Simulated scan of single mutants.
Amino acid sequence: MRMSAVRLRHLRAFVAVARQASVGRAARDLAITQPAVSKAIRELEQILGVELFDRARRGAVLSRFGEMFLRHAEASLSALRRGLEEVEDATAPHALPVRVGALPTVSARLLPDAIRRYQAHGLGAAPRVVTGPNEYLTEQLRQGDLDIVIGRMQEPEAMTGLVFEHLYSEPLVFAVRASHPLAGAPLSPCALGAFECLLPPPGSVIRPAVDRFFAAFNLPRPASVVETVSLAFSRRYVRASDAIWVISEGVVLEDLQSGEFARLAIDTGDTTGPVGITLRAGVLLSAPAEVLVKELREAAAEIRAA
């Protein structure tokens, strides 16, 4: 193929001669000899099968084929230069960080594995993880203070100017300590009403799913409620009380698998919701951010396969 025969030295020599309209000046700019420049031009013309300069005129004047090829050669060199600069910036010790907003419901499951994978690339751009309520993270993303937000998909009206990539889906669970009175027993809806519940606060991305579930199955209002998005607080509170924690499965999956927590016998299949990446529409990510997005996809693929 012709393209495989073209070398960087061919493009550099051609663009330099075209810009300077002189082989001699191009040679000085490139810090090589005139014969080397002339040879590179001849080789390029042989590869393309056309003359790039009009030999009938004095100086280095582009032919119509030369004019046609110049814009592509310049674009290629420009793209290569930008690529080199981007890689250099990404590997520099003081590169700008990759700023990730993570809802608490994914910071415990998806993100740690993706960050470990990202760190293995040895990039200079450190990951900066910010957690908080969904509205806060979304506003930070819109303002450009975050590069990526990871969590459940928001309601359509909140997605203007944003794009969402679905990675996997997960349901809500009703989690309790392993020795809870309701753990491992058949469950009647009225039994829930006697116990305190930890719920996501209004405005959190999973609260609508929680409210819809309670309403759809006519579940009683809990005896008392604590509203929180703090995973550390909730985990400690559940360990020390009979509270029921209503939360995304991924947050407590390790606790459930270890046997420290138990899942109440409530079918929450209807609460399954999409978890994924939210980005600003039409905004290109930095090279390090692209690497992190790739690793998020890989980590999510393993979750789907589990």
Rank of each mutant, 00 (worst) to 15 (best):
E51C: 02
P35T: 06
Y136L: 12
F213T: 04
S234I: 03
V50A: 00
L219W: 13
C197I: 03
L162A: 12
A120W: 04
L110C: 00
R82T: 06
L137Q: 07
A232D: 11
R7E: 15
G124N: 06
I244F: 09
D89Y: 01
Q34V: 11
K39Y: 04
I277N: 02
P181C: 09
A216C: 06
I277Q: 03
A108M: 13
Y237A: 06
P35C: 09
V205F: 07
F164W: 04
L231W: 13
Y136W: 11
A281T: 06
V246A: 06
E88L: 11
A114Y: 12
D29I: 06
P208A: 12
L48W: 07
S76T: 02
A262L: 01
D54K: 01
G124W: 01
V275Y: 11
V251H: 01
L253D: 13
C197L: 08
A60Q: 05
V293S: 03
R280H: 00
G122D: 10
P35S: 07
L279W: 07
T160I: 10
R239S: 05
G151H: 05
A114T: 08
V229G: 06
P222N: 13
V37D: 02
R2A: 12
R117W: 07
G193S: 09
R128M: 14
V275E: 07
Q46P: 00
A120T: 03
H10Y: 10
V238S: 11
P222S: 13
V275W: 07
D145M: 09
A300D: 08
A305S: 15
E43H: 10
L182N: 08
A56N: 14
I115T: 03
R280Y: 01
A209L: 14
G184Y: 09
F261V: 04
L110K: 03
P220G: 14
A185W: 05
R152N: 08
A13R: 07
A75L: 14
A5W: 02
V106Q: 08
D242A: 12
A287H: 12
P112G: 09
I47Y: 01
